[in-house]
Design a binder for these strands. Structure first.
Lengths: 161, 161
DNA sequence: ATGGATGCAAAGTATTTGCAACCTG
DNA sequence: CAGGTTGCAAATACTTTGCATCCAT
C-alpha cells in the first residue's frame, strides 16, 4: 500500500518508456498517491504533496495524476461529488463500491458472479468490454443506527420496478 | 415517451403538492424533457427549450431539472463526460447502461439476477440501498467493425484480476 | 541542445446564486 | 399580497492551458 521501491521504479520506467520525463515533482506526487489509502481527490493529494514540497503547484498535480491515469497506474472515479477521486490501479484488485449517502464512507466489494454476468451482457450485445463501473448507494449500518432517514423523497407514479 | 397529458398533469400536481409553483417555463422544460428520448444534457435541453421560447434562461433549465430530480421525475447520470445527463424516471423501467467508448452510443440493459446480487451484497454489508449505478464501457459491434482500437494503453504490473 | 515539465495566472467548463422585477396561488 | 420564480450577471468550483523559464535526457 505504501510506495514500495519496486513499484515506484516500475511506474517510473513505464512512464519513461512512453517518453514521459521523470521529475522530482512527479516522484513526490506518485509516492504520495501510492501511500494514500482508498480514494483521494486532487485537492487532498495536492495538500499532502505540499507537506513535502510546498512549491509544487496544483497544475502539476493535475497533470501528473492525469498522466498516471493515462498509463494505467490510477483509476479516476466519480462518486456523487463534483470533484473526481483517484485510486491506485496497482496495489489493489479490481473492485466496486458501496457508498454511504449519509456519512460518505465508501466500502469496497468484489463479486465474481456479477462480473461474469456483466461480461455476458456485453458479449450478448456485441460489446468488447474494457472496464465498468458499479456503485451501490445507500445508508450504512452505522448511520442507520444513528437514525438517518434512509430514503430520499417519494416519487410520482413511475414505471420503476 | 412524449409527454402525455396525464403524465404531465401528474408531475405538475406532485410539484404543487410540494409547494413548487408551476410556471410557463417549467411546463416547457418538462414537456421538452419528457419528449426527449434517452439521455440529455442541460445544454441540449436548453437549446430545445429555446426553440419553443427563446427567452428561457439556462439558469431556469438548471433549476427546473434539479427540481425534477428532487421530486423523482428525472435521474441524473454521469457518464465519462464533464457534464451531467438526465433521463426520465417515469417513462422507463430501471435500467443500466452499456457505453461505447468509441462512438458514444449508449445502450440500456436490465439484468434481474445482477440486481438481486447487488441487493445481497448490500444486505451483507448492512447497507440500506436506495439506488445504484452500473455502467459497462467498451467498443460496440459497429465500431469494432470500423476498426477502432478496442483497448486503451497497456499497464504496468498490476494486481488486477 | 531540445523538447517536455513547471509555476503562475488566466481561461475554460459546468453549475449555482444574488438580486430586482415578476408572477402564481 | 406573499413568497416562490425568472433572467441576468456575477460567483463558484474544478480543471485545463498559454507562456516564459527550467531541466531531464
Amino acid at each position: 500500500m505504501d510506495g514500495s521501491p519496486d513499484l515506484l521504479r516500475s511506474v517510473r520506467e513505464e512512464a519513461r518508456r512512453r517518453g514521459v520525463r521523470w521529475t522530482a515533482q512527479r516522484q513526490i506526487v506518485l509516492e504520495t498517491f501510492l501511500a494514500s489509502h482508498d480514494h483521494i481527490s486532487v485537492d487532498e493529494l495536492h495538500h499532502r504533496v505540499r507537506e513535502i514540497d510546498h512549491s509544487v503547484s496544483a497544475a502539476t498535480v493535475y497533470r501528473t495524476i492525469n498522466m498516471l491515469v493515462d498509463i494505467g497506474v490510477a483509476h479516476k472515479r466519480n462518486f456523487g461529488s463534483s470533484s473526481a477521486s483517484f485510486e491506485s490501479a496497482l496495489t489493489k484488485q479490481h473492485h466496486d463500491h458501496l457508498v454511504c449517502t449519509a456519512c460518505g464512507q465508501i466500502e469496497e466489494f468484489h463479486h465474481d458472479l456479477i462480473e461474469t454476468l456483466q461480461d455476458e451482457v456485453a458479449k450478448d450485445r456485441g460489446f468488447s468490454l474494457s472496464h465498468h463501473r458499479m456503485e451501490l448507494y445507500g445508508v450504512c449500518a452505522a448511520c442507520q443506527l444513528k437514525g438517518v432517514i434512509p430514503r430520499p423523497a417519494p416519487v410520482v407514479e413511475t414505471a420503476e420496478s
